[in-house]
Design a protein around this nucleic acid. Structure first.
Lengths: 98, 98
DNA sequence: ATATCATATGAACAATTATTCATATGTTCA
DNA sequence: TGAACATATGAATAATTGTTCATATGATAT
């Protein structure tokens, strides 16, 4: 019960983390990566969105250490970088689906 | 693994849910309620924030079914309305604290 | 080298949002 | 009824953010 309240600084980081999950485009990108790595172009095509949009959002995910990168020739492959990602999303789904 | 990707509509709801967690004031309010119900004024005072700010944010939490309300005389008491709240927050903390 | 392909990045714009101020609503007590 | 208290609400403002367009960077192959 009586959980210790984190420092304000930590709460800001926590809020920032949840902000990352608070955008449907980023959620869709993460779902795209549930099955394994994927290239930027492939993600963009599979979501029918602009390459630039995906690239911008991947940067957000990267900055927050939710995805990691691998380059292979001209293409750059992204994959999930955190075990919690799926868990956090599924926990949210539990709530949404009642 | 191969989780089924939720409908777009569900993904929007999911994003909306995470948006609620993506604000430090709301996180602080939720932490305030970890130990049990609390009145608006008490929350405002304990966070040293304006009553109006807290009230606005409590409405967001209420709308998203994360807190529930009880009136007792002049005061209105809020409490967490969902078992997932703590779990979602703690899962996020796990990531933030590495 | 240069053309081509894949991705990243910066600027601009529209849309969303958190907070504040002022005020309204609703409750209690005299 | 009226005063005092607790909370809610609307309007206004400042700040943040997602997308697009145009362009830059980096890699490959000819």
């Amino acid at each position: 019960m009586t959980d210790k309240i984190p420092e304000l600084e930590v709460l800001f980081e926590l809020a920032d983390l949840f902000k990352v999950f608070g955008d449907s485009t980023r959620l869709r990108i993460m779902y795209t990566l549930f099955d394994g790595e994927n290239s930027v172009g492939a993600i963009a095509e599979s979501l029918s969105m602009e390459q630039s949009t995906i690239s911008h959002q991947l940067r957000v995910l990267r900055t927050n250490k939710l995805v990691k990168v691998r380059r292979d020739g001209k293409q750059i492959y992204y994959s999930l970088d955190d075990d919690h990602v799926k868990k956090i999303i599924e926990m949210g789904l539990d709530h949404v689906l009642e």
